[in-house]
Simulated scan of single mutants.
Amino acid sequence: MTDILVTGGTGTLGRLVTERLRTDGHEVRVLSRHSPPYAVDLRENGGGLDAALGGVETVVHCATSPRGGDERAASNLVAAARRAGVAHLVYISIVGVDRVPYGYYRSKLAVERMVEESGLGWTVLRATQFHDLVVQALQALAKAPVLPLPAGIRDQPVEVAEVAGRLAALAAGAPAGRVADMGGPEVRTFESLARAYLRATGRRRAVVKVPLAGKTYRAFREGGHLAPGRAVGTGTFEEYLTARFGGGEDGRRG
């Protein structure tokens, strides 16, 4: 079996990728800023990165931060992977990074290009937003008595465990380049997702749709972050809500 390093291996996605790879019999190392023995901050290129990559054949790069630093981290990782003779670099990206002019998306696109130009064997998978992230956003918005939503926005959330399974399968295979996008089973209005979340959590909030302005908002309204032709995920938002909160099974589609 392959020796594999998972960056961000303690995160929402990386933890599940690690579990799946180990279940499949692979030797897996977890690289994270605070998890020995491979506690490395990729952004700082500190000591330990070369040791973490020693003897590794494949790297699954899940580490990321919307607060910045992804490009610097990827540059350090690619350089170290070259030194170590890594054969396969697998990267998880986001559907729409080439269509939505959002700062975090642009950074993810820049990392994609670094991976493609790394000189290593590579695979890039783009996925739509995870159920977890949608709920995280709604939790923040629902803190006020009124729940404001950007008007006209749809989403296509996908179950993170399904993305982890796909990444693990790609890591176990040969470099495949840019593979087909992975989207959730349904394209939903953000309002319908919000109302399903409120029902599942027993919260009562007035929902107000707020029109916004700008290129990024327009790109989201036009569905640049969606992959309706790649609705290959099976886990629905209501099923996720039921598992997490014990409700949401009667949520309506919208």
Rank of each mutant, 00 (worst) to 15 (best):
E159V: 11
V232C: 08
K143G: 15
V232M: 06
R20I: 12
W122M: 08
G96D: 07
V187N: 06
L167D: 02
G96C: 11
T236C: 11
G69M: 09
V158N: 01
Q129K: 01
T2E: 05
R67Y: 15
A142V: 03
A168Y: 04
A81T: 05
E44P: 00
A172E: 10
L109R: 15
F220V: 08
G14E: 01
V111T: 01
E112D: 14
R252E: 14
G246E: 09
S75Q: 15
L133R: 07
R113F: 07
R83S: 15
L212C: 12
G224V: 03
V40D: 05
I4P: 01
K143S: 12
A213T: 12
K215L: 14
R22Y: 08
A161M: 08
K209L: 14
M1Q: 04
L147S: 04
R82T: 09
P150R: 06
L89F: 09
E112C: 08
V208E: 05
G54W: 09
G248M: 04
V95L: 07
L42N: 02
R72T: 14
R218L: 15
K108R: 13
G68A: 06
E19C: 05
T242N: 14
D24V: 05
G173L: 13
Y240G: 05
P66K: 08
T58C: 09
D181T: 11
D181G: 09
G248Y: 02
R203M: 14
L31G: 04
E27F: 06
A227V: 04
G119W: 10
R230T: 12
F220I: 10
G11F: 00
R188G: 03
A63H: 02
F190Y: 15
A51K: 07
P148A: 07
D41V: 13
H225E: 08
V6L: 10
V146N: 09
Y197G: 06
R67I: 12
E191M: 09
H61Q: 09
I153D: 07
A176S: 09
A172D: 08
V124E: 03
T58H: 04
V17I: 14
A39P: 10
G183H: 03
K108I: 05
R67P: 03
R244G: 07
D250L: 14
V40S: 02
A63C: 08
T12I: 11
G8W: 06
S107F: 04
L31Y: 05
H61N: 14
T64N: 15
A169G: 12
R33K: 13
G68P: 11
S192V: 10
R252G: 14
A180N: 10
E112W: 00
P145Q: 06
S65Q: 11
G11I: 01
A172S: 15
V232A: 13
G119R: 12
E57H: 02
Q129C: 08
V134K: 01
V60N: 03
R221Y: 09
R203L: 15
P101C: 11
V179L: 09
P101V: 08
T12K: 13
G229A: 13
G184A: 12
E239I: 06
T58V: 06
